Amino acid sequence: MEIQIEPYEAKQLDAIIRLSLRAWTPVFESIQKVMDLDVYQEFYPKDWRVSFS
């Protein structure tokens, strides 16, 4: 497998967002399971996806 790094183009934004959500969703789900819910909601009051947009 060859990896090629290319300059960012605005037309790639949707694909980058989809990839990021796929990558980070399991991470935040596991954090939420082990962290006290009140503490988690202090960090991400609306949703972690909103916090990073």
Rank of each mutant, 00 (worst) to 15 (best):
M1T: 09
M1R: 10
E2Y: 02
E2D: 05
I3H: 11
I3F: 14
Q4D: 15
I5M: 10
I5D: 12
E6K: 13
E6R: 15
P7V: 11
P7T: 08
Y8P: 09
E9N: 06
E9L: 13
A10W: 01
A10S: 08
A10G: 07
A10M: 03
K11L: 07
Q12S: 10
Q12E: 09
Q12C: 13
Q12T: 08
L13K: 11
D14I: 04
A15L: 05
A15W: 01
A15R: 12
I16N: 06
I16G: 04
I16F: 05
I17T: 14
I17H: 15
I17G: 11
I17D: 07
L19F: 12
L19E: 09
L19N: 15
L19K: 10
S20V: 03
S20L: 11
L21Y: 06
L21V: 12
R22K: 08
A23K: 13
A23Y: 05
W24R: 14
W24P: 04
W24N: 14
W24K: 10
T25P: 05
T25H: 06
P26W: 09
P26T: 11
P26I: 12
P26H: 10
P26L: 14
V27A: 09
V27C: 07
V27Q: 15
V27Y: 15
F28T: 09
E29V: 08
E29G: 07
E29H: 09
S30A: 15
I31Y: 03
Q32K: 13
Q32V: 03
K33H: 02
V34Y: 09
V34H: 09
V34R: 12
V34M: 13
V34C: 13
V34A: 15
M35K: 00
M35H: 00
D36R: 11
D36F: 03
L37W: 03
D38Y: 00
D38N: 06
D38L: 00
D38E: 11
D38H: 03
D38V: 01
V39D: 08
V39A: 12
Y40N: 08
Y40G: 02
Y40F: 12
Q41D: 02
Q41K: 04
Q41Y: 00
Q41G: 00
E42D: 01
K46F: 00
K46Y: 00
K46T: 06
K46Q: 07
D47A: 05
D47T: 09
D47H: 14
D47G: 14
D47S: 12
W48L: 00
R49G: 02
R49C: 06
R49Q: 14
V50P: 04
S51Y: 00
S51E: 01
F52K: 02
S53R: 11
S53D: 03
S53C: 03
